[in-house]
Design a protein around this nucleic acid. Structure first.
Lengths: 225, 225
DNA sequence: ACCCGTGCTTAACAATTTCATAACATAGTG
DNA sequence: CACTATGTTATGAAATTGTTAAGCACGGGT
């Protein structure tokens, strides 16, 4: 996958946490756990997850209030938030949509339903997300076609190479550290050897046929004209 | 001049039906009427409207269930569905979200509000699926006839194959991920094995007899000339 | 009700592509 | 110059997709 998707999961019942964590990790998501609303807010600010799943009923701070505070955090206004609710809870209390929830997931939780719902939500996110194409210094990156173009000629890349290139070109001139690159192209907990990034960089350079990817020794790489 | 837009309107109160029908027809829409959820499903399948407006509370089958069934009908996965809801029905809103509604129109209905909402919805539709036929690289897809044509010769496909082809050709060049494809051709809650998509792709390729469907390894498939 | 054909899914296996690594070369830095 | 970070290359493992055939479910017709 491109950058691994990070999900913050908050519930006060360890069983549910464990159950959902298991299913989410199995799908390849990056999962962070919290056990009350207070933690939810702190972790959200710290980790900037892509999606937050909040139980409504929790000690210390309930999900509604947590949601409100998260939404009031700069940079987290557009995070996806879904509520967990028991079927028989009083829906009027779950006026969750008033505080800006994006979806709700009913208990008891069925793994398949939950996962498909999450995928649907994340798909919505993708639609809004960054620009589909970037044009910079004679080459154009089309994230939808998974192709780069130079003078109208398509250059195709295998997945990792493309994602690496897409990352670098997403902010031309910015230096991405190796850790950055590892986290965002490979995923947070993936461990790969020292030379892996270099090899991919090399192949991209070869295909692009120019010097647009610069090495910043001791730091990382950047895409620059 | 495009085809007239077809709206299926379902409510059990004749007054509301008449009132809305009047306003919609005045705007030049093609209106079909139903008076309960059962009729909604039947008419939706029969008429393939562009937009369905469902009351939540209805005899025989409520709007929620009708929506669910419509969404599970092949070929109607992407139909626009809007719910009619009385102001204070929190429950409706939440449950409606659950089954994939696109919008809510509150009662009491104000004609102008309703019409602008409907136009906004249909604008969304235009981006994606408006054209009945697509012509691309020697082949033509007719979504109404469920047929593809190459040099005037019809090629017929079973439903799944056709929908898959229709999806890919809806945006030539764009890579559709496997998850995308699963969600939009098979449906959100359907779980099928790993090789199912491949098998369908293979059959389509066989029938098209060319290389227009490309594999993007690790991502998905695209239709490209 | 029964049969038949079609469409859909699966499973097993083959073919292919991509990826990570190791070993070594080179360049940059103080 | 010594040391460290990066470049290069070939190679095998791993991941992904292709292919085929078989079985099941469903609908239409008799």
């Amino acid at each position: 996958m491109s950058k691994k998707i990070k999900i913050l999961l908050v519930d006060d019942e360890p069983d549910i946490l464990e159950f959902m964590e298991y299913n989410l990790i199995k799908e390849g998501y990056d999962v962070i756990l919290g056990k009350n609303g207070k933690e939810a807010v702190d972790l959200a600010r710290l980790e900037k997850p892509d999606l937050i799943i909040l139980d409504i009923m929790m000690p210390v701070m309930d999900g509604i209030e947590a949601c409100r505070q998260i939404r009031n955090t700069p940079g987290l206004k557009d995070v996806l938030i879904a509520f967990l609710t028991a079927r028989n809870e009083d829906y009027s209390q779950i006026a969750g949509f008033d505080v800006g929830a994006d979806d709700y997931i009913g208990k008891p939780i069925k793994p398949r339903v939950m996962l498909s719902r999450i995928k649907a939500l994340l798909r919505r996110l993708n639609g809004v997300h960054s620009e589909v194409t970037t044009k910079i210094g004679g080459i154009e990156i089309d994230r939808e076609k998974y192709l780069a173009f130079r003078d109208g000629n398509a250059i195709s890349f295998p997945r990792k190479e493309f994602e690496l290139l897409a990352l670098l070109t997403s902010k031309p001139g910015k230096v991405f550290t190796r850790d950055d690159i590892l986290a965002r192209v490979w995923g947070n907990d993936v461990v790969v050897g020292d030379r892996t990034i270099d090899v991919h960089i090399r192949k991209i350079r070869e295909k692009l046929g120019d010097e647009s990817i610069k090495t910043v020794k001791g730091i990382g790489y950047k895409f620059d004209i």
